[in-house]
Amino acid sequence: MFSRKAARYLYTTIFVALIAILGTLSLSKLCNFYINDEKDLIEWTPQLGSKFETEVASNFSNKFEFINLNGAVRNLIGQKSMNGVIKLDNTYLLTTMNHCSDESIDKFADNLSAFNTYLDSKGIPLLYASTPYTLSKYGSELPTGVEDYGNDNIDRLIAALNSRNIDTIDFRQTMHDDGIEHYDMMYRTDHHWTTEAGFYAFGKIEDYIVSKTGCTIDPRVSDIKNYTITNYPKWHLGSRGQRTGIYYAGIDDFNLILPDFDTSISGYSKTGTVQDVMINMQPLENRNYRSKHTYDFVLGGTLGHYNNLNSPNDLKILFITDSFGYAVGEYMIMDFKEVEYQYDQNSKNITPDYIEKYNPDVVVMLCYPQIISDDSTSFDYEAFKTR
């Protein structure tokens, strides 16, 4: 048996050796980062006091394993926060939002009103569709003492847009009215909505476009019976799960929804089915918890500039959106002749000259509530105020 002094010495030696080994491995990773620009696979990196400190921490050896261990311990002792993420009472993960000022809300609404007036002069409908926020507005799951203004920001922006006669869809409200459980449509470890939520949202957007244009559509596109849903269990560790590890709130399932009927689309020098042209199957071949978001990697190709070779109508859609649009893009192009995507945070690129050149029949804005902030660049439509 070791004496107490000898045991302390042994433990200290092992601890120091472990730190030395990890330090050597981390130094190797840091050198590889500087020399070969090889970044860590984990989405989240800490933001520390200096650029060098951040780079050292970001390239710490076995960082993901330490995040997992940290998350497991915090889960066991019931801590509700970790690395800027809040665990709701129902175990969903949230990054809280600050209050957006009334002045910013009014500015955003005025800019969109100018955009809407310009489009209306050309007979082009504009729809602003607000995606749901992780935290439901119907029954708070916030831990005691935590403040969040996400739903309040949405409420005030939607009200401001409606007062200016801009068409809106609030998917928080439509899901509630349709008896859909809010959290069934959101990932537990991610800020995104699920693929099922994207399909649901498309159906509402389709209804709006048909009501405004009277266009002919393919009824198969919005009927879930015409799709195969493939479940990938415990496959998706979202942006918030990357910060907290696989033991803090678990890992999400990922469902891929693909059409059973023939499709033919073209874009970026490719022509083929939706699956051939838009869907990246590689992340679904092997489960990898260290991978960045399965959602983004699998569906990221659904946004772009595409043409539908089987379209029953001649409509051109301008789709202004963010990564929430990944879960909607494939259905949009299956329903209409042409869809062009613009990133909502690059709204200053959408000018009168751009609209005249592309000449869309309908403009759909599908936006995540995180853009409703005082420093947002997603509502910069000042160019339309001078028209």
Rank of each mutant, 00 (worst) to 15 (best):
F261M: 07
R156A: 08
I224D: 02
M186E: 07
T271S: 14
G123V: 08
V16R: 01
E181D: 12
K212P: 01
S239R: 09
C31F: 14
D148L: 00
T131C: 14
L94M: 05
D380G: 03
N116Q: 14
T263R: 00
P46D: 11
T263V: 00
S113P: 00
T174C: 00
L25M: 14
T91K: 10
Y331D: 00
S113V: 04
K137F: 08
V146K: 01
V364S: 08
N75W: 11
D344H: 12
C31S: 10
I14H: 07
I67W: 06
E141M: 15
V362H: 00
D155L: 02
L119I: 06
D207V: 01
K39S: 12
L256T: 04
E330C: 10
R290L: 15
I371R: 12
N36V: 05
D170R: 05
F66Q: 05
A249R: 10
N70M: 09
Q275T: 15
D375P: 05
D190F: 04
Q282S: 11
N226L: 01
M185N: 00
I205A: 01
A6V: 13
L127P: 05
K137I: 07
N83F: 01
G250L: 08
L284I: 03
Y128W: 11
N313G: 12
D184H: 12
I169S: 05
I105Y: 07
T271N: 12
K234R: 14
E206K: 12
Y289W: 14
Y368H: 15
I158A: 00
S81R: 15
L112H: 10
Y268T: 03
N307C: 09
T273P: 05
D262A: 13
Y92Q: 01
R290T: 13
I333H: 03
L112G: 07
T117Y: 12
L256K: 06
R243T: 03
T134H: 06
I77Y: 13
N75T: 11
A6M: 11
H305Q: 02
L309R: 05
T174W: 06
F202R: 06
L127G: 06
A159H: 06
A160C: 05
V362K: 06
L135Y: 02
R188N: 09
